[in-house]
């Protein structure tokens, strides 16, 4: 029996949330195409830390966890994966659209001669293979691609697939070999720079509170940060305020920043230029606060308040704290 191989990541020895979308999609594909549903975790992982992985109909879980690859190394991750792929010869390999998925999927595809399609938002099964939808031009257009030949490598765009669990089942867990080469020429991860306070990244958050030029001064983002903390949200920013040096580029939402689709996107003082719009238009719910009633963002926001954000944010904070 041929198989589907899903590559998931761990963080602090637990599987990452982004994995749940992959696992849900993998289960659907495996049952429709009658494939063995195999999952591989690379990085440190302890099963006891989370049981949720049992609820996705996985047949076999392969773990490459060793402290030798607790930090990301493109070459070591690649080699461990290639070893397994050459053994299993999967018909389809799924990656997440995370930083690691984006880096690793092309390397794998290049080495095994599979086609790679990135940032997929929909996968349907056809007789000969797969039909896949993905956004291009930052989402201004959606393309549908048909793969008549398998095998393929696919990476999924985050927050595009629903998480569906089924009854728990027993999973066979197998430790795979990780060959650590000592090639001095390979780049090494020297250090990881963490922000002073752990922050949620816009690409992973289910709620984003964003600010634009209407915030007037960088200090005023304290209001955005406070509201974001109450809502357990990530802080986002428009290109204008990133270019002005008010906020780091990692927070930029838009065509030259991150393309996000959280459940809730709240925009303060952002007019909604097309480059910003394409970065957040697939949010499930958009709220806009802007004092200009003609701002383009009101054309596609679900809920708008035309008013002074310096009155509205403190009021929101006060009422939310008050419950």
């Amino acid at each position: 029996m041929s198989c589907i191989l899903t590559v998931i990541e761990s963080k602090n020895k637990e599987i990452k949330n982004s994995a749940l979308e992959l696992l849900s999609e993998a289960r659907k594909i495996s049952s429709k195409r009658n494939l063995d549903n195999k999952v591989i975790i690379i990085g440190e992982y302890e099963k006891n830390n989370s049981t949720q992985i049992n609820e996705f109909g996985i047949n076999a879980l392969l773990t490459g966890s060793t402290d030798k690859i607790s930090k990301y190394s493109p070459e070591l991750y690649r080699d461990s994966l290639l070893h397994t792929i050459n053994e299993l010869k999967p018909e389809i390999i799924l990656f997440s659209g995370s930083a690691i998925g984006k880096d690793l999927a092309p390397r794998i595809a290049a080495n095994i001669g599979y086609n790679l399609v990135t940032e997929c938002i929909d996968i349907s099964i056809i007789e000969e293979g797969y039909e896949i939808k993905r956004p291009i031009f930052a989402g201004k257009i959606i393309q549908t691609l048909r793969f008549n030949k398998t095998p393929i490598v696919v990476s999924l765009k985050s927050n595009s697939f629903t998480i569906e669990k089924i009854e728990e089942n027993e999973i066979s867990i197998k430790q795979i070999d990780v060959n650590v080469s000592e090639d001095k020429k390979l780049p090494i991860l020297r250090e990881i720079i963490q922000p002073q306070k752990e922050v949620l990244d816009v690409s992973e958050a289910s709620t984003i509170v964003s600010g634009g030029r209407g915030m007037k001064e960088p200090e005023n983002f304290k209001l955005i940060e406070e509201l974001a903390e109450i809502l357990n949200a990530a802080v986002g920013a428009s290109r204008a305020v990133v270019d002005a040096g008010w906020r780091p580029h990692s927070e930029q939402v838009g065509q030259t920043g991150k393309i996000v689709s959280p459940n809730l996107y709240i925009a303060f003082g952002i007019s909604g230029a097309i480059q910003h719009q394409v970065g957040m238009i697939n949010s499930k719910c958009i709220v806009a606060v802007n004092k200009d009633k003609n701002a383009p963002i009101f054309k596609f926001a679900d809920y708008g308040i035309v008013g002074d954000l310096f009155e509205i944010i403190p009021e929101l904070i006060a009422e939310l704290k008050n419950k």
């Binding site: 257009i141 959606i142 691609l145 048909r146 238009i281 054309k299 596609f300 926001a301 308040i305 008013g307």
Partner: peptide, 21 residues
């Protein structure tokens, strides 16, 4: 893969203005 088609994403409906202050 074979490109089957291009299409526009679903257009968002214009929402509602809840208030002005």
């Amino acid at each position: 893969p074979e490109l089957i088609r291009l299409e526009y994403p679903k257009k968002r409906e214009e929402g509602i203005i809840i208030g002005e202050d």
